[in-house]
Protein backbone atom coordinates (compact mmCIF):
# COMPACT_ATOMS: atom_id res chain seq x y z
CA UNK A 1 0.00 0.00 0.00
CA UNK A 2 1.42 3.37 -1.01
CA UNK A 3 0.71 6.08 1.57
CA UNK A 4 -0.74 9.39 0.41
CA UNK A 5 1.67 12.31 0.05
CA UNK A 6 0.34 15.32 1.87
CA UNK A 7 1.52 18.89 1.32
CA UNK A 8 0.51 22.47 2.05
CA UNK A 9 -2.20 22.43 -0.64
CA UNK A 10 -3.96 19.12 0.05
CA UNK A 11 -3.58 19.07 3.84
CA UNK A 12 -7.09 20.36 4.51
CA UNK A 13 -8.70 17.70 2.32
CA UNK A 14 -6.49 14.73 3.19
CA UNK A 15 -6.14 15.32 6.93
CA UNK A 16 -8.66 17.77 8.39
CA UNK A 17 -11.63 16.68 6.27
CA UNK A 18 -10.88 12.95 6.45
CA UNK A 19 -13.57 10.73 7.91
CA UNK A 20 -11.26 8.16 9.44
CA UNK A 21 -8.39 8.85 11.89
CA UNK A 22 -5.23 10.10 10.13
CA UNK A 23 -1.61 9.44 11.05
CA UNK A 24 0.66 12.16 9.63
CA UNK A 25 4.33 11.19 9.34
CA UNK A 26 6.33 14.40 8.98
CA UNK A 27 9.75 13.59 7.59
CA UNK A 28 12.63 15.14 5.68
CA UNK A 29 15.13 13.75 3.19
CA UNK A 30 18.05 14.93 5.39
CA UNK A 31 16.75 13.21 8.53
CA UNK A 32 18.36 9.84 9.35
CA UNK A 33 15.86 8.59 11.98
CA UNK A 34 12.99 9.36 9.57
CA UNK A 35 14.18 6.50 7.36
CA UNK A 36 13.29 4.08 10.15
CA UNK A 37 9.98 5.58 11.28
CA UNK A 38 8.41 5.91 7.82
CA UNK A 39 8.68 2.23 6.84
CA UNK A 40 7.44 1.19 10.30
CA UNK A 41 4.35 3.39 9.89
CA UNK A 42 3.75 1.97 6.41
CA UNK A 43 3.96 -1.61 7.69
CA UNK A 44 1.48 -0.88 10.49
CA UNK A 45 -0.91 0.87 8.14
CA UNK A 46 -0.80 -1.97 5.60
CA UNK A 47 -1.57 -4.55 8.27
CA UNK A 48 -4.86 -2.89 9.13
CA UNK A 49 -5.90 -0.45 6.38
CA UNK A 50 -9.34 0.29 7.86
CA UNK A 51 -8.05 1.43 11.23
CA UNK A 52 -6.44 4.70 10.15
CA UNK A 53 -5.23 6.50 7.08
CA UNK A 54 -1.49 7.11 6.78
CA UNK A 55 -0.22 10.22 5.06
CA UNK A 56 3.41 11.22 4.56
CA UNK A 57 4.43 14.87 4.74
CA UNK A 58 7.81 15.78 3.29
CA UNK A 59 8.93 18.95 5.10
CA UNK A 60 10.04 20.42 1.78
CA UNK A 61 6.38 20.63 0.70
CA UNK A 62 4.86 21.06 4.14
CA UNK A 63 6.63 24.10 5.52
CA UNK A 64 3.62 26.41 5.93
CA UNK A 65 1.44 23.76 7.53
CA UNK A 66 4.27 22.64 9.83
CA UNK A 67 4.64 26.22 10.99
CA UNK A 68 0.91 26.49 11.71
CA UNK A 69 1.02 23.16 13.57
CA UNK A 70 4.13 24.37 15.39
CA UNK A 71 6.11 21.30 14.37
CA UNK A 72 9.81 21.85 15.06
CA UNK A 73 11.33 18.40 14.69
CA UNK A 74 11.56 15.47 12.31
CA UNK A 75 10.41 12.82 12.52
CA UNK A 76 7.16 13.97 14.09
CA UNK A 77 4.03 11.86 14.09
CA UNK A 78 0.63 13.50 14.47
CA UNK A 79 -2.62 11.69 14.99
CA UNK A 80 -5.85 13.38 13.88
CA UNK A 81 -9.45 12.45 14.58
CA UNK A 82 -12.32 14.47 13.11
CA UNK A 83 -9.96 17.25 12.10
CA UNK A 84 -8.46 17.61 15.58
CA UNK A 85 -4.95 16.69 16.65
CA UNK A 86 -5.24 14.11 19.43
CA UNK A 87 -1.63 12.98 19.87
CA UNK A 88 1.89 13.89 18.84
CA UNK A 89 5.36 12.40 19.24
CA UNK A 90 8.79 13.32 17.93
CA UNK A 91 11.97 11.33 17.45
CA UNK A 92 12.97 7.81 16.49
CA UNK A 93 10.56 5.03 17.39
CA UNK A 94 10.47 1.28 16.83
CA UNK A 95 7.52 -0.36 15.13
CA UNK A 96 6.34 -2.01 18.37
CA UNK A 97 6.44 1.31 20.26
CA UNK A 98 4.58 3.01 17.45
CA UNK A 99 1.99 0.25 17.52
CA UNK A 100 1.52 0.71 21.29
CA UNK A 101 1.26 4.47 20.86
CA UNK A 102 -1.48 4.01 18.25
CA UNK A 103 -3.31 1.55 20.52
CA UNK A 104 -3.27 4.09 23.35
CA UNK A 105 -4.52 6.95 21.24
CA UNK A 106 -6.90 5.47 18.66
Amino acid sequence: MEPIEVNDSNYQREVLDAEQPVLVDIWAPWCGPCKLVGPAAIRLASRNPDRFKLVMANMEDFEQTAAILNVRATPTLLLFKNGEEIARRSGAVMESQLSNWLDQNL
Binding site: A28, W30, G32, M59, A66, R72, T74, T76
Partner: peptide, 17 residues
Protein backbone atom coordinates in the same frame (compact mmCIF):
# COMPACT_ATOMS: atom_id res chain seq x y z
CA UNK B 1 10.07 21.11 25.20
CA UNK B 2 11.52 18.09 23.43
CA UNK B 3 10.53 18.38 19.77
CA UNK B 4 9.20 21.89 20.47
CA UNK B 5 12.49 23.71 20.47
CA UNK B 6 14.77 21.26 22.26
CA UNK B 7 16.66 18.92 19.94
CA UNK B 8 19.69 16.66 19.93
CA UNK B 9 20.00 16.54 16.15
CA UNK B 10 20.92 19.69 14.25
CA UNK B 11 20.81 17.94 10.87
CA UNK B 12 17.28 16.65 11.58
CA UNK B 13 15.84 19.86 12.96
CA UNK B 14 18.08 22.74 11.87
CA UNK B 15 15.68 23.38 8.97
CA UNK B 16 13.04 24.63 11.42
CA UNK B 17 15.26 27.46 12.65
Amino acid sequence: FMGKGVSACATCDGFFY
